[in-house]
Amino acid sequence: MHFLEVKNIKKSFGAIPVLKGITLGLDARQTLAVLGRSGCGKTTLLKIIAGLLDGVGEVFLEKTNVAHLPPQQRGIVYLYQEALLFPHLSVFENVAFGLRLRKLPNTEIQNRTESMLVDLGLIEHVSKMPPTLSGGQKQRVAFGRALIVQPKLLLLDEPFGALDVETRAQMQQLYKRVATVQGITSIFVTHDLKEALLMGDQWGYMEHGNLDVFHSLETFSSDLRTGVRSEIDFWKKL
């Protein structure tokens, strides 16, 4: 059995089916990059896995069915496109937020938060308030806030979609490094082909409420729907 098993997830909004029986498996420390156009059901899938939306089907995490657990008991953190930093808390308190919820001792919170801030290159911004940060810094704080609680699974819903090209590239590298070092298991949703190729260890393509998972880059590239072939052809023609 995989670290994450999603079985036959279905969801409809009124009479419109959005997810038509999604099934996938993901091993620990792997990232599944899911590519798909806007409105294909990517966000709905992630929200159901996180427990933020009701849906039909089963979600097994480390062999435990978490489908009936509330989101706070699943050990799954969902990251949005926007950083969604808490505006009333400093950078330090934003990152430490999950630890405070767990009511850990202050010294442990201090040490772990400082260590995370150093790791993400944010230590000099520790007492700043969110509105004074740049887009990239905000997203790094959001990462720190998610990673510090050591989630079993991280769900990233187009997390770099709102960033400029340069910052986006920096964040992709940062995420890759942190994911490798910390052994993060994640589903990374994007509509950017290059980002999907860079972030994933395996890839998925979502269309009309169905998900096809590709375990190798070759099979993913050879599927015409993913757009890899046309992208390669474009660059060859230049």
């Binding site: 996180a50 933020l52 706070q72 953190v77 969902y78 926007e82 969604l84 998610a146 609680v149």
Partner: peptide, 13 residues
């Protein structure tokens, strides 16, 4: 609403 949901996934009641 997203902030509220995020709090839940971070472990908040």
């Amino acid at each position: 609403r997203a902030m509220e949901d995020l709090t839940y996934t971070l472990g908040g009641t």
